[in-house]
């Protein structure tokens, strides 16, 4: 019995990879995917995002130039600086004659990973605290005061302190690169959950008094099930917005962090950093800002459209219309 069930579940799951995690029951998953497919924007977004992910995953294997490579022959390096796109360098070179395509591909890996993981952390904490505070009156006070505290903390000293206290320890335990990554996503995640917590809490406060919640409670549904089955699906749309905005926010925050010397080592490219460095050269070499800017915007836009499509697909009232 169980074997068959598992097989049946995993079949549509393969078709609908990005969706299935959110909607385990089998028939619903297919419904959602069908609905999702009809959303043109969402499909375009999905395709573009997949292309970007593919490019940054496979790209560095195809385009094997080291993004941090500077020609030690100074004369060659000087000649190769700030070049427009050519076949050898399809996106041109930067002020140290480093290949911009390699930097964009490599930078995308870090930026996307930071953006996605930091967003997940922030949305997870935010939604959790928001739901708990909104649903349980006793937790509301303490949790919201905690939110106020975090909102009031000045970000920069907080990050400096975080890096100073935990930087060396974490780097030693999991290695310098993984350590820096962990610290950065943690730092961004912990300092950006507050607005989603407040928004979710506001929604939950209103939802809690709705008839369907009252009905569920009157038949003795335990709090945990009530939250998961009735409350969470109804706060999905602000959470989606928070998640899309969160990715953009995290990518930008990372660039500011590395600019402050708190992020990755200085020769590590990320999209945000490429954009930041490019601003100085904006008038002379516009492509220096256009490329990373475009990459960030495209990613954010496609995530946003996927979010739109997902929300529509997840809403039973819209689905099937």
């Amino acid at each position: 019995m169980t074997d068959i069930k598992l097989g049946e579940v995993s079949k549509p799951a393969r078709n609908a990879e990005p969706v299935v995690k959110l909607a385990p029951p089998r028939s619903q998953a297919r419904d959602i995917w069908d609905q999702f497919k009809t959303h043109k924007g969402a499909m375009t977004g999905l395709v573009i995002l997949c292309l970007i992910i593919l490019a940054i995953l496979i790209g560095p294997f195809v385009w094997q130039i080291d993004p941090a490579y500077v020609n030690p022959d100074a004369a060659k390096m000087i000649l190769g600086r700030n070049k427009p796109p050519t076949w050898a360098h399809p996106m041109g070179t930067d002020q140290l004659a480093r290949d911009l395509l390699a930097r964009m591909l490599y930078g995308g890996r870090i930026s996307l990973a930071v953006g996605a993981v930091a967003m997940l952390i922030s949305v997870f904490i935010g939604t959790g605290i928001g739901v708990l505070a909104g649903y349980f009156k006793r937790l509301d006070g303490p949790l919201m005061r905690l939110t106020d505290l975090f909102l009031a903390l000045p970000l920069l000293p907080l990050l400096l302190v975080l890096m100073m206290l935990f930087g060396d320890t974490v780097r030693k335990v999991v290695g310098p690169e993984a350590g820096t990554f962990l610290l950065i996503v943690f730092a961004i995640g912990v300092t950006s959950w507050m607005s989603s917590a407040r928004i979710v809490r506001g929604q939950v406060l209103a939802l809690k008094e709705r008839e369907f919640v009252l009905a569920a409670r009157s038949i003795g549904t335990p709090a945990r099930r009530l939250i998961i089955r009735h409350i969470l699906p109804n706060v999905i749309s602000p959470v989606m917005v928070a998640a899309t905005l969160g990715i953009a926010g995290a990518i930008i925050t990372e660039s500011v962090l590395s600019f402050l010397g708190l992020g990755f080592p200085p020769d590590f490219p990320t999209w945000g950093r490429l954009l930041y460095d490019g601003v100085d050269y904006m008038q002379l070499y516009p492509s220096r800002v256009i490329l990373p800017g475009l990459a960030i915007s495209l990613t954010v836009l496609s995530v946003n459209y996927i979010g739109d499509g997902l929300r529509d697909a997840l809403d039973p009232r819209i689905r099937g219309r």
Binding site: A68, N71, P72, M77, L260, G261, L262, P265, D267
Partner: peptide, 27 residues
């Protein structure tokens, strides 16, 4: 920005020399 460029350049020369260089920048 200038110091970061210098770091990258000097790293390239030192790497050529056979030295393993790790860069760090501090606020």
């Amino acid at each position: 920005p200038v110091r970061q460029d210098f770091q990258s350049l000097i790293k390239s020369w030192w790497t050529d020399l056979g030295v393993d260089v790790e860069l760090k920048s501090v606020d």
